[in-house]
Design a protein around this nucleic acid. Structure first.
Lengths: 136, 136
DNA sequence: CTAACGTATGAACAGGTGTGCATGTGAACG
DNA sequence: CGTTCACATGCACACCTGTTCATACGTTAG
């Protein structure tokens, strides 16, 4: 009894129960990956701005580009990413393409995260910057 | 009146109102960056698993490593990232370090995102894979 | 038709990210 | 004391990401 695998952790048997119960809560790999994919998609300032802007009303590519201060090409690339995740949809009208939010969850996700940021994330940011600096 | 900048978009004046109102909703740059940072932190399968596991109860590094199937070093590296964002905290007991969630928002964030994934993200994933394939 | 426009996309490049390896640090134990 | 253990960290390297540039596509105007 006790140690199942080689010398990994002396007190293995103590936390085995915890590991087991924790493993049960883990979503299946596919869901985990999808989850991470969505968060990674939201993990870019440009895309956050796009989604915030579109939360008001639909906008065309060139207006988004002007709003963001980046090229229309870069904007289009980012919109492609957002489209691939079904976060935005678009409607073609002549040569224009009007984009809008495709998913209601996203807005509440961002608002929830914003609440987190506005609360006690100040020390967090300091810590981050300290680490990032010392890493260079 | 009308066109403010050089030849960017012919119908500039039409959507100027939209751009203006959309710009008002945008959070200040610092908040946007913080928001994106948090999402980017959540945008990794390993870290998602860590947070899901810790949502049950605190775990030490070596148990997390076993649970995740990666090295303790990699686990420690990821925990450092999560710490820097104040997403987890740790308690030292002898040579062990027990980690637990530091923020209640995070769990609800992940659950909200999970709801999004479980709904209609299937087509989304197909699209993503199609794009990823054609990009190689 | 041609030309111009708004948008989309492929290639390329700088910069960033996650993991393994080697090593360091502090605590517990003989 | 020195050794072992759990954990942390610097470095290196393969991989991924976001932007720019050049170009192509479909639509509209002349």
């Amino acid at each position: 009894m006790g140690r199942k695998e080689a010398d990994v952790c002396e007190i293995y048997y103590v936390n085995e129960v915890r590991v087991r119960s924790a493993r049960q809560v883990l979503s299946p790999e596919r869901e985990i990956v999808s989850l991470a994919e969505i968060f990674r998609t939201l993990g870019d300032p440009t895309r956050v701005k796009i989604l915030q802007a579109l939360s008001v009303e639909e906008l065309c590519v060139c207006d988004l580009a002007k709003l963001l201060g980046i090229s229309e090409s870069a904007t289009s690339h980012q919109l492609r990413v957002l489209r691939s995740q079904k976060l935005v949809r678009f409607r073609k009208e002549g040569k224009m393409a009007f984009y809008s939010l495709d998913d209601a969850h996203i807005d509440s996700l961002m608002k929830e995260a914003l609440r987190h940021v506005r609360e006690g994330a100040d020390q967090g940011r300091e810590t981050t910057e300290r680490i990032r600096e010392s890493a260079e």
